[in-house]
Computed example of a mutant assay.
Amino acid sequence: MKAVFAAALAALCLSACAGNPISDTDRLALYQAHAGAPVKQVRYLDPIGWDRVDDQHVVLEMRPNESWLLTLAGPCLNWGSGSPFLQVSTANGITLTPFDKVIVPGSQISCQIREIRPLDIKAVRAGENALREKPKAQASGT
């Protein structure tokens, strides 16, 4: 049995559009700095959102304070289809493992999950705020 999740792109736009934009490279470094050790599986709930970091990384938000950094096998997220959705296909619908897949509807390619790491969301948010404030501080000469 496969469980499939689809979430609107609105959450991505809201986080990316707030304040000064942060580059994909800086965001990935921030997520990796605040990610725990890789896990073999996580309890799969209906996620409340997701955020594309780059072509190989996605943050899956299960609850307001529970998010996971997924590393995918190769650059395979084809955003050219224009789909505002992301699907997560799990083998059993109960757990998410490094053998499950991420799919962008309209794309011919599915991406195998290679690694799942828990995120310290409070630290990530603080780091994002600091990165957004950095250009303001540089502009003011501080």
Rank of each mutant, 00 (worst) to 15 (best):
L28Y: 03
S67P: 09
L45I: 06
I113A: 04
T142H: 11
A11D: 13
Q112N: 15
D100T: 01
L70P: 04
G106R: 10
P98V: 10
I103F: 07
S67G: 07
S67V: 14
E128Y: 00
Q87S: 06
L131S: 00
A37W: 13
G82K: 11
E66A: 09
E66P: 06
L70H: 15
P84H: 12
C111M: 09
L72V: 08
A130I: 02
K101P: 01
M62W: 15
S67N: 09
L72E: 14
T97D: 07
P75C: 05
P75F: 09
K122H: 07
L96D: 03
P84A: 15
S81D: 12
V58E: 13
K122E: 09
P21E: 10
S89K: 08
S83K: 10
S67M: 13
A35W: 08
A18V: 08
I109D: 07
R114F: 12
G49A: 14
R125H: 03
A123L: 11
D26R: 00
A137K: 06
D51R: 02
L14N: 04
P135I: 03
G19C: 02
S81N: 11
T95D: 10
A35M: 15
C13G: 11
V102S: 04
D120S: 10
L70A: 15
K134H: 03
N129I: 04
P64W: 11
W50F: 09
V59L: 13
D100P: 02
L9N: 07
S107V: 11
K40S: 06
G106Q: 10
K101Y: 10
L72P: 01
L14M: 12
A73V: 05
T95R: 06
L69R: 01
L60E: 04
S83R: 10
L9K: 12
G36R: 10
T97G: 02
L77D: 00
G106D: 14
K101E: 15
K122Y: 10
E61G: 03
A10C: 10
T90M: 04
E115N: 12
S81L: 15
L60C: 05
T97F: 04
A123C: 06
R132G: 01
R52K: 03
V4Q: 11
A91T: 01
A8T: 11
D54T: 02
A7T: 06
I22S: 00
V59C: 04
R43C: 04
H34D: 04
A123D: 08
T142V: 08
D55G: 02
A91I: 01
V104R: 02
P135G: 02
P64K: 12
E115T: 09
G74E: 05
I48A: 02
F85N: 09
E66M: 13
L60A: 05
A7L: 09
I109L: 13
A126C: 01
A91Q: 03
K2A: 06
T95V: 11
P75E: 14
A37Y: 11
G93V: 03
L131V: 00
Q87R: 08
T97S: 07
P21W: 15
R52L: 09
A8L: 08
D120P: 04
A18G: 05
A16R: 08
I113E: 08
G80Q: 14
L96H: 03
